[in-house]
Design a protein around this nucleic acid. Sequence first.
DNA 1: TATTGTTATACTCTATAACTATA
DNA 2: TATAGTTATAGAGTATAACAATA
Lengths: 146, 146
Amino acid sequence: MGEDLRDSTLSDDLSFLLARASAVSVAAGNAALAPHGLRVRSYSVLSVVAEGARPTQRELAEYLRLDPSQVVAIVDDLEGRGLVERIPDPADRRAKIVTATEAGVRLQADASADARAAERRTHGSLDVGDLPRIVELLRGLAFPDA
Amino acid sequence: MGEDLRDSTLSDDLSFLLARASAVSVAAGNAALAPHGLRVRSYSVLSVVAEGARPTQRELAEYLRLDPSQVVAIVDDLEGRGLVERIPDPADRRAKIVTATEAGVRLQADASADARAAERRTHGSLDVGDLPRIVELLRGLAFPDA
DNA sequence: TATTGTTATACTCTATAACTATA
DNA sequence: TATAGTTATAGAGTATAACAATA
């Protein structure tokens, strides 16, 4: 009863669908990452630097769409646990480059396996063949200026 | 410089793309709705009941994926402004059905126009022909149990 | 003058737990 | 016993503003 709310016009609303899908996904992701002491946010930062990128905090903030002050807090946490390091940018002494430690790379690999498994579980009903198309479309929504 | 972060493997991560796309969309939505005294959350509740649905608060919570206590706060706000009403459910005296007032219906119509315009502006680069497919795919991600 | 990282603050959102009245 | 609405609270996320060091 009442399940016909799904026929509401809100179910055609891009914003609503994105918000709901994101909430589902982030909740599942946070649960899967919790045993590693990570959340979706810190996992994102760790993932970027674990594959060898050497972004400044400002670049991380723009890419992840976080306020620079949020990046400070996340990097503080990861650095305090020995997973990332702040390196002064030789080209700009104001900037700090974030890099992963070996421990950070290892933890990211472990966490990544769990995160991917959780994603498959959460969206198991999804046709695998649709994935590349979904990712392509979502990129356009996630980076609207591109 | 540094913009090659977009080639990061995170850009293939469904959770990350959903979170970023949602953040972009909600921010634009909140900005567009602010002149109407609404946010994406309250607009969603108002929209559901404005088209004639008569859900209980519990049904609203499930559909919008909110905690029942959040629905209380949102309905308190909307009711205090004369936009919705709580009606006791004749079938279950514990439950309260939420309905829109005439003022609520009018405000939703006005707000809806602005919200849709903002959405078109935000995702203007999107091919209109892709929209139905996106909505269909996002429904699957937003309601994974379906 | 403008930008990077930082600190501080306030507000919103998320997640739980507990209470009441009903079922 | 279980459920609907409510209240309360703590933690996470969002948004601004201001400051020191540097460009």
